[in-house]
Every structure is written in C-alpha cells, then in structure tokens.
Amino acid sequence: MQRSTSDVTELAKERNRQAAERTVASWIGSSLLLIGFGISFEEISAALMQAFPKNSSQFNTQLGSLVGLGAIAFGILLLVPVAIAHFIELKALEQENYLVRSPRSLYLFVAVGSVILFGIVVLVTVIFIVSQR
C-alpha cells in the first residue's frame, strides 16, 4: 500500500484535531456560563418578584427576563460561529494538503466586544433604574 504522508504528519494532524476539540470545549465553557447565568438570573429574579410583591413592578419583572434572555441569546450566538469554524477545521484536516483558514482571533474580538457591550447595556439600565427612584 502506497502512503503519501509520514507517521509524523499523521500524528501532527491528530494533535491539531485535539487542539481544535479543546478550543471548542473552552468556548462551550464560556457559552455555558452565559446560558447558565441567563437562566439563573431569570429564575431567581422571577422568584424574588413573587416573594416580595411590594417591590415587583411590571418593569422590574420584565427587566429580569430581558437580562436573562439577552445572556441566553448571547451564549447561543457565540457558539454558532465557533461550531462552524470547527467544522471547517475538521474538513481541512481531512484534505491532503492542509492550509490555515480563517483568522480565529476575529471571533475572540467579537466575543470580548459583545461581553463589554452587554455589560455597558446592563450598567446603563441599572443606573437608569436607580435614578428613577
């Protein structure tokens, strides 16, 4: 049987695959944190509104839901491009000649930028609520 690639190259491909798996696992951790935070925030917020009805206005109740929903949506949206990039990477590893594809750092900038934006939106909302009292 004729083999075009050496053992070392095949082993390197396997290492690249495992590195890609670990990268996605790390992104899953970040996404999980956001989705878990969103669900917990909404649930705890709803429970507190039920427990203390004097303080639960319609606005407060919906704000808790919106922050929770925002975090969940953000967690989902973060994972979609990561999954697509991972799929492309796996397909590239199956090719005979491997070429580095899209710049991964773009996703990191988008993720960090989105977290900062999310934080600013929540901060402005909280300042707005405090100033209304």
């Binding site: 890609a20 798996e21 996605v24 696992a25 992104w27 899953i28 996404s31 999980l32 989705i35 969940i72 967690g75 989902i76 994972l79 979609v80 990561v82 999954a83 991972h86 799929f87 796996l90």
Partner: peptide, 13 residues
C-alpha cells in the same frame, strides 16, 4: 464530540 456537545447546548439554549 465537541461539535455534538455544541449543537446540543445550542438546542438547550
């Protein structure tokens, strides 16, 4: 496996 877990997590989300 990571792709499977990612898709499952997106579905749960």
């Amino acid at each position: 496996l990571s792709l499977t877990v990612a898709i499952a997590l997106i579905s749960i989300g």
